[in-house]
Design a protein around this nucleic acid. Structure first.
Ligand code: ZN
Ligand code: ZN
Ligand code: ZN
Ligand code: ZN
Lengths: 160, 160
DNA sequence: TTGCTGTTGATATGATATAACAACCGATAT
DNA sequence: ATATCGGTTGTTATATCATATCAACAGCAA
């Protein structure tokens, strides 16, 4: 058990299930879940935090896989493009999706003390935002929401 | 008159007023609105779009001002830090604030056809998001909202 | 076989952002 | 006047993030 997102959970199962879900989705949709792509996702799942592309690359390099930037970026493009991972714009970093396979519109909660990132739903916020801009004529296709704040773990530590 | 944000307006007055508002706020708050900072804001107001730091730097260079990256980034840090400009994370670019001086929590509407950026209020979305995460214990301090979509101008052009 | 599509390998380059330190300038205290 | 201090500027160098390009290769279908 490790502290992840903002809650404890069985991390080994978490990795297994994440890989299995993506594998199933790829099979269903005819996507090629190649060893490189699988390994990058596995790294993201193992670390369970937002990682920079070069940080991932370092891990690949240590394993003898191709270690040039395009290797990491290509795998990440695939994962992000298919919703198996997400890019955190604020951090220029990537994180494994917490709900692989499920259609969802994520928002991210970024702790500014410990840099942990959790995935939440942006449905309500999207609805509110759509309402807000309704009179401008702007048509929202997609929304990036990244909230900065203090995670429960760090809040607890602070209160000590 | 030019097309800006998503609506026509008197752009000359828009620049004048933007500079005046920031000047007033700086005087009130004891901030140093130096020539460089002023010039960078003026460039952002003139272009009235999201600009990369190096794009701004090119303009400064052409005018004989200091032309090394820190020059632009320092001015932008000042402007963003004091709410006179905003960073669009999605574009790694900066834009002059549309409501300088006023306390506000902006959201941005980014047209994926013409790259224009408009500033909207994120108040309702922030409220919705706060509600959404209320049971996680995460305390939101600040939120970045960037909506991707089609601006009214491009929607009109499409419908043709 | 040939052609087509998608993936990988590899080199090079581009784009964005910061570290570090010296010089300068204005305000203030001695 | 002069010492000092905080904030700004000038400059060089470097760090960090991301993409262009092209050759090789594998799977599949005509
Ligand atoms: Zn997700
Ligand atoms: Zn935290
Ligand atoms: Zn603003
Ligand atoms: Zn547009």
């Amino acid at each position: 058990m490790e502290t992840i997102g903002f809650s404890k959970h069985d991390h080994h199962a978490c990795i297994e299930e994440g890989l299995a879900a993506v594998e199933a989705t790829c099979r269903r949709d005819g996507l090629q879940f190649t060893p490189q792509r699988r390994r990058v996702l596995e790294i993201l799942l193992q670390e369970h935090r937002a990682m920079g592309a070069y940080e991932i690359l370092d891990k690949l390099r240590a394993e003898g896989m191709g270690a040039q930037p395009p290797v990491a970026y290509r795998a990440l493009d695939f994962l992000v493009g298919n919703g198996f991972a997400h890019k955190i714009e604020r951090l220029n970093a990537f994180i494994a999706c917490a709900h692989p396979g499920a259609r969802h519109k994520p928002a991210f909660l970024i702790c500014r003390k410990c840099d942990s990132v959790a995935e939440a739903s942006s449905d309500a916020a999207l609805k509110a935002m759509t309402e807000t801009v309704s009179d401008t004529g702007f048509q929202i296709d997609r929304m990036m929401i990244e909230a900065l704040g203090i995670c429960p773990n760090c809040a607890g530590a602070e209160a000590t």
